[in-house]
């Protein structure tokens, strides 16, 4: 579940909060000031940060690959309409942002990131979001994904035996119904282990 790669660089040691803030700042700056030199400078800086973090080029490429076809279309459109500089700006800015975002992800353990998020969400308390509850919900989600995958595999097998494997409805309905029934047990199990939703966790 953790896409991060281990390391001891300053980037790895930096707590997640500042990294996220820096990313947001960079994103804002790039869009507020649409200048090619700035975009290229950020791109260069990002490359240097990747080297600092000791991340192999293979992984750098993997960050951008999902964007490849969108990028191609964008650059072609911009080239045709506004000339090569505009195309280059759009491409450089997008790649720089994706790489920076990927860098935060790669150099932070997801458990740290989740913990930071949980702390960062404390300001939501007046709106009714309790950080302790958010923490439990996050943990439960991570716990449920493999359980759901297992239920889906089971149901798919059962439906295949009935010749229904191509029907998405025949697959989804039993999975969701089982999941809802399970939720009663899970809630009971959490209560049985003395969980108190009204006492903010420590």
């Amino acid at each position: 579940m953790t896409p991060s790669i281990p390391g001891r660089s300053p980037l790895h040691r930096c707590p997640p909060g500042p990294k996220i803030l820096a990313l947001v700042a960079a994103g804002t700056a790039l869009f507020a000031l649409p200048r090619l030199d700035l975009a290229l400078a950020v791109l260069g800086l990002t490359g240097w940060l990747y080297r600092l973090a000791g991340i192999p080029a293979r992984l750098v490429l993997a960050q951008v690959r999902p964007l490849a076809w969108i990028l191609a279309v964008l650059v072609l459109v911009q080239l045709a309409l506004d000339g090569w500089q505009a195309g280059l700006l759009v491409a450089a800015r997008l790649v720089a942002l994706m790489l920076l975002a990927g860098l935060v992800t790669l150099t932070t353990r997801s458990s740290d990131l989740i913990e930071a998020l949980q702390r960062g969400l404390a300001w939501l308390r007046p709106l009714g979001a309790d950080p302790a509850k958010v923490g439990l919900a996050i943990a439960l989600t991570l716990r449920f994904i493999p359980v759901l995958a297992a239920i889906t595999a089971e149901v798919r097998e059962a439906q295949r035996a009935r010749g229904l494997e191509r029907s998405l409805v025949a697959l989804t309905v039993p999975v969701i119904v089982r999941m809802l029934k399970m939720s009663d047990d899970v809630a009971a199990a959490i209560d049985a282990r003395s969980y108190d939703p009204d006492r903010a966790g420590d």
Binding site: K133, A137, L140, F144, I145, L148, T152, S183, D191, P197
Partner: peptide, 21 residues
């Protein structure tokens, strides 16, 4: 939110993730 609501929230977050599979 009750415990059951929290479980529901987690289940549907997990379901959305599972749909991506």
């Amino acid at each position: 939110m009750s415990t059951r609501d929290i479980v529901f929230v987690a289940l549907f977050a997990a379901l959305t993730a599972a749909l991506g599979l």
